[in-house]
Write a protein that binds this DNA or RNA. Sequence first.
DNA 1: TTAAGTGCAAATTATTTGCAGTAAG
DNA 2: CTTACTGCAAATAATTTGCACTTAA
Lengths: 140, 140
Amino acid sequence: MTVTPQQIKRGTEWLADGGLRPTRQRLALAAMLVGDGNHRHVTAESLFADVRGSGEKVSLATVYNTLRAFCEAGLLHEITVDGTKSYFDTNTHDHPHFFWEDSGTLQDAPSEELEIKRLPQVPEGAEVAAVDVVIRLRRT
Amino acid sequence: MTVTPQQIKRGTEWLADGGLRPTRQRLALAAMLVGDGNHRHVTAESLFADVRGSGEKVSLATVYNTLRAFCEAGLLHEITVDGTKSYFDTNTHDHPHFFWEDSGTLQDAPSEELEIKRLPQVPEGAEVAAVDVVIRLRRT
DNA sequence: TTAAGTGCAAATTATTTGCAGTAAG
DNA sequence: CTTACTGCAAATAATTTGCACTTAA
């Protein structure tokens, strides 16, 4: 599980997009998150395990702080489905998710396939910040 | 904030529906939750504060355990929006919610007004357990 | 009487923070 | 240089649990 130059390049650009200093730890995390160009859904613990598996040394507290920083920079989206832990999504567009209830896994649902025809009327003095749609799945 | 006979009656019936023993503590909580016939959204802490305000003595641990029991009996629905705490809804039908981001308040959204035209295709070997829709509101 | 429910206080889990040391601009 | 970042270890917050005691059936 070595990090390739390609992944490092993607990570560096991604950090630059968020206006964040490319420290060694941030780069290691960024490479894990966007290195292969695909979207990912991680928890602090899962990302911590991944980065340690890649050989890089990053503390768990830094993983937490960094995920927060990435969110504030608009690079990640935090998703709450489980109550016990936070998930972070590299896809920052408002889109639906599948949540596997048995394994606690989160995955993108194709947003083109969701069509909301009508939304409930929003109360006065309010505007919609986001619409979270989580489709909970049960294994058959 | 005294509990009326009416509220107690409603609470008792509600507990019976869930097949739960009507203890003093459970009755006090049930009366707060369904006593007036309206749906409510509570957290363990908010319900604890309410019940203490009514004069009844119930421990916080019992509030937690009882909310769990009510959920398992199908009397309540747990909702996760905030990450830090759990909300419990007396309306157990699958319906959308408004979540006020500033105050952390949860409220029902009229379900008739939400129309989902098409849902993403569910992966093989899975069925939909529920579709959670949370409309996050920002005060304008 | 007896299995289920309750109340503490201690344990757990996910996450944040204080602060001394390290590194990026 | 100097301000931001990192890593511990300790703090916090929401929730659960162990266990002796109480109560509904």
